[in-house]
Simulated assay, not measured.
Amino acid sequence: MATTQFHRPMPPACVISWRSSATRPTGLSPLHSLPKEIKTRDIAVKVNSKFKWALKLSLQVNQSPLKSTVDMEKLVGFLYDDLPHLFDDQGIDRTAYDERVKFRDPITKHDTISGYLFNISMLKILFKPNFMLHWVKQTGPYEITTRWTMVMKFMILPWKPELVFTGTSIMGVNPETGKFCSHVDFWDSIKNNDYFSLEGFGDVFKQLRIYKTPDLETPKYQILKRTANYEVRRYTPFTVVETNGDKLSGSTGFKDVTGYIFGQNSTAEKIPMTTPVFTQASDAERSNVFIQVVLPVDKNINSYPDPNKQTVSLRKVEGGIAAVLKFSGKPTEEIVCEKEKALRSNIIRDGLKPDKGCLLARYNDPGRTWSFTMRNEVLIWLEEFLLD
């Protein structure tokens, strides 16, 4: 299982690297934060295998480098402290921004700090967002990049769908004021991040579908990245009670593991229900399958009673990094295998290294849940993952 790694590359000395016009939101010039007297020299360079273009700006004032008093390291530390308050009662410090700050994401734009703060207030009312900051880096003389995850529930709709966005924000610094003068968001789940992106609007709309998740305890995880096809999650350790199964979509052994939590254990203790039910295939051929029920995390594995049946056992899952594909409907063996194949193909294409085997997570009672609202997930543990 993977451990998350973080890079803190050294920024170039006197170069600002910007995304091309194909990825930079329309109307936001890379020169907007620089004083007018700075002369520029455009150099077209090819970067990485996707043939993107970068604009490098050589800063010259009468053939001498511009000296700025902006303490970029201090601004990086400031963002680490300030951004976690984006949606809480304290809020961000508006004095750190120019009055004419340019904010862009794929479906929203504002050109003043007042408009930016209004957008934050509306999100707090409509979506109850949970914002997680992963890292902050200086990526240019007057540029800082952040990586984040935002999970929101759309409170207006009766089923309160969960919307997940992950990505980076490029924040420009005005060298004259030392304040932020631009904030541009790039979502991991879409290719066209220009405002107004129909792809971005579609990404929001498709997340409004109904997934029924029971109000029960589940294994704890944090979403690190959400692409167009899957999520990357970091799971904390959890304990399962398990026994042999027959296939990923099967129910063989289910009565034995649920019998344990209903009192068929050494102390006749009844243990609260949780979700999901896992079936795990430990090899690529799916020849060795276990069915598992998650146990509450308020106890460690040594605090639970022993199973009455010798075929039932307790096991601690160490957690780690997993790629996850969510889908609805009845999870037949054919469908589950198709989803596993698609997930594995996508993560290999993206340069990730999957473990052998997989898990199927079923969150719902099939006898009491409409199939189109069922929440099912295929999980594949990753050997390593770099959150860049």
Rank of each mutant, 00 (worst) to 15 (best):
D215F: 03
F78M: 03
C14K: 00
F201M: 15
W381G: 10
R24S: 08
F205R: 13
R19L: 06
A323L: 09
S33A: 11
L352H: 10
A54W: 02
E285S: 15
L31P: 00
S249Y: 04
F51P: 01
T243D: 03
F127K: 03
R94C: 05
D82A: 02
R147W: 04
V277Q: 02
L31W: 05
L55M: 05
L59C: 09
D203V: 06
V297G: 07
P30N: 08
D215I: 01
V15A: 08
E269W: 02
N376S: 09
A54G: 10
N193R: 11
G202D: 12
Y221P: 01
L163A: 12
I125W: 05
D71L: 00
I223W: 05
K36C: 06
N308H: 12
Y142M: 11
Q292N: 10
F6Y: 11
T95S: 14
T112C: 08
I271N: 02
K316S: 15
S68W: 00
G367F: 14
S328L: 08
S21N: 01
G27C: 09
A22Y: 00
L360S: 07
L126R: 00
M152Q: 13
E334I: 07
S121G: 03
S287A: 07
L66K: 02
R368C: 07
P272G: 02
V293R: 01
Q207R: 13
F238S: 02
A323Y: 07
S17D: 00
T23E: 06
Q5A: 04
E269L: 10
D98T: 13
G202C: 12
K160D: 10
K212I: 05
S313H: 14
L57I: 05
V151S: 15
D283S: 12
M72R: 01
F186M: 11
K109L: 04
W370H: 08
I170F: 13
